[in-house]
Design a protein around this nucleic acid. Structure first.
Lengths: 340, 340
DNA sequence: CTATAAATTGATACCGGTGTCATGACTTAC
DNA sequence: GTAAGTCATGACACCGGTATCAATTTATAG
């Protein structure tokens, strides 16, 4: 089996099959201009030798690599991991590889760095989870460089084939209806930084959900946090110290919602008896806290997978099928209960 | 500035500098056989044109890519993320890119898949965090393929340049001494699967730490979990139902330790008054739980960074310096207190 | 000043694929 | 049966670099 120590090249296959390397190339690339007999003969040799084309050489000739870049700058590693896993699910066995690239989206050199990264590596495609996906200059650069890309974000910023929308607003609206249906009327909101599109969308969705139940968001009950645990503690302390204390708090991510637990404990308040809490992300901590926390779940891994399917052709997955719709889902646990 | 739309190649630079492409190649590769004047002239052109060699072409000629593979199969995504971040820290600006590759270490086709992956991509190097790092067949394969690699694991399984040791045992020993010093004598252990080297090492370290204080591990107080929350709940339930109930529980990871919180609550026991808990990993949940959990911290990101420094030459980091020693550290919080 | 050694440099082949275009074989039309 | 068109294939250049080795220049020795 192991005749020579080095992997066979296209020349070896061509010689063994008694054809030119160009014909082997045609077989590899599924050119229709190959006689059936020839194709089979070549494929037999390919199978016997275990030949696989060298991605570097192929990429050099194609002027395009077989690398997909994941460009991210998410404060929540959970998001990155999940997206990455999903992407890898979709890419497994496709012959493409995933190159990960964290960036600082506030860096003035971001665009230059991205240009160099993409041009140098001649990336086949790029996946941009939020908040990087929200940078229109970056999207413009990708179009200029003629690279395939998929942006993952909470709202449609691009044409369908290039944008995967997670509809964060719908999930937030569901949370709003849930709390309203439990009888809450003084519902506080701990938002993330308004520079994040997700914060804006989630807030909008939350407000529209409240509106559906005839409620509106009291500006005095809105705090802007930084998507961190500490900022959640701080915001919750202020909210829980109010004379007209809210009976429920919705947080735009679980980190901050966890901070509400801490603040509530310090204020001597019980969850959910004194204050209901609903988070966003359904991170692993949500179900570990006591009481287990209600939270809006985004199918992050699925989103990564779908983005991958949109980007790379995968022979193992035959059906290109319609792009499934991503829907957030409210997971109701014990941290949200009837008011009173 | 932007004369032509395509990036300059080595030929452009050679023509503009009035030398052959081979000389430009020598300058790029820092060959000592280039006259100072020539080198400067070429470097000037390189700077002016913004030329950068094509990694694919270079890799093709070198028979080696500029890709580093991260091969992992860790049930705890936190570990993967942290290692990955550290690796990327070390690789930033080096010209190398990180390709991530999750695997199933129990798959019978693992070795074949790895061989194909490494040979096809002609990887420059590979990083193997535990538990993948514990597979000796894989290490043998990497040596056969003549690929640089760094194994990250709890104990030395390879020569120093190829192994980064995290000394999990020391951290576990510290936890043991900590609990013993608090007066605990009936100390339970919830272990991970013994197929994980980390479990074995942590347990050994824990036992030696107990021995230092004149204690020994009671086999009746040892449960083997699966490194999951659920297994932690199950193991803790059994332990806390014992007549001779342990006054402290050490868990070989935080997931299981979090399960002890749940089991204790269900059993009506208080932490730390009725039972002290110490975890391992110092994952983010440890400090969010109530009471905040004592846990052994491993500098995972630093480990990734050091592994990266061991693997890739980085011009931005001049000092190769001695390999720093990785030391676990016990973070004492409120879940461990004097026996009483 | 000449012979010899050492330092520089470039011509050419090659890494392992693909694109272009010409060529020969085979059909189909008349 | 011959002309024209289609199909199948290969020769050769090329993608953008590096390796080899010979050629040229410069330095050192005698």
């Amino acid at each position: 089996m192991e005749g020579s120590s080095r992997r066979p090249t296209i020349n070896d296959v061509a010689r063994m099959a008694g054809v030119s390397k160009k014909t082997v190339s045609r077989v590899i690339n599924e050119s229709p201009f190959v006689k059936e007999d020839t194709r089979k003969a070549v494929q037999t040799i390919i199978r016997e030798t275990g030949y696989a084309p060298d991605p570097q050489a192929r990429g050099l000739a194609f002027r395009r690599s077989f690398l997909v870049g994941l460009i991210y700058d998410n404060p929540n590693p959970q998001h990155t991991v999940s997206h990455q896993q999903g992407l890898l699910d979709a890419m497994a066995g496709s012959g493409f590889e995933l190159v990960v690239r964290p960036v600082d989206r506030t860096s003035p050199r971001l665009l230059d760095e991205m240009r160099v990264f993409i041009e140098r590596q001649k990336l086949f495609g790029v996946v941009l989870p939020s908040p990087v996906s929200e940078d229109e200059r970056l999207a413009a650069l990708l179009q200029e460089l003629d690279v395939r890309y998929v942006r993952i974000g909470s709202v449609a910023l691009d044409e369908p084939g290039r944008m995967l929308v997670s509809h964060d607003g719908k999930g937030a609206a569901e949370a709003a209806r849930h709390l309203a249906d439990l009888g809450h009327t003084r519902i506080a909101l701990i938002s993330g930084p308004t520079s994040f599109r997700s914060s804006v969308e989630r807030r909008k969705g939350f407000e529209s959900g409240l509106a559906e139940r005839g409620l509106s968001l009291d500006p005095a009950l809105v705090k802007v946090g930084g998507y961190t645990y500490e900022s959640g503690v701080g915001a919750a302390k202020e909210l829980l110290a109010l004379k007209a204390r809210p009976t429920a708090v919705f947080c735009l991510n679980d980190e901050m919602a966890t901070g509400v637990y801490t603040a509530a404990r310090e204020a001597g308040l019980r969850i959910p008896e004194d204050v209901s809490v609903v988070g966003f992300d359904d991170s692993s901590i949500a179900s570990r806290l006591w009481p287990p926390m209600s939270s809006v779940r985004l199918p992050l891994r699925d989103m990564g997978r779908i983005a991958g399917e949109m980007l790379v052709p995968n022979p193992l997955r035959d059906k290109p099928k319609v792009q499934p719709d991503i829907q957030p889902e409210l997971i109701v646990r014990a941290s949200s209960a009837k008011v009173g």
